[in-house]
């Protein structure tokens, strides 16, 4: 499982864009098994919080499946 760190910049339903420290943007889908709800993503985006996302490649898609989202600062 890969880990990405960065800021949630765009949220649509359970999908979000994570801009990593090196400036790249990754598209992720929040897994049904993740301990987070799509409604929580919007709050992370508004607060521009730094998060760590454990993810795996999405099958037959250009994107990732977020399995776990951890808050790295207390801004949110």
């Amino acid at each position: 499982m890969q880990t990405l760190e960065g800021i949630v910049t765009v949220v649509q339903e359970g999908r979000f864009l994570l801009t990593t420290d090196d400036g790249r943007t990754q598209l992720l889908v929040l897994s049904y098994a993740a301990a987070a709800e799509p409604a929580q993503l919007a709050a992370l985006q508004r607060a521009q919080s730094r998060v760590r996302v454990a993810c795996t490649p999405a099958p037959d898609q250009i994107g990732w499946v977020a399995r776990r989202v951890d808050l790295l600062d207390a801004a949110a």
């Binding site: 765009v10 949220v11 649509q12 999908r15 598209l27 889908v29 037959d60 898609q61 250009i62």
Partner: peptide, 11 residues
């Protein structure tokens, strides 16, 4: 782009 939907059906 607007809805942040991933490209699928690769191939």
């Amino acid at each position: 782009e607007w809805n942040a939907l991933p490209a699928d059906q690769i191939g």
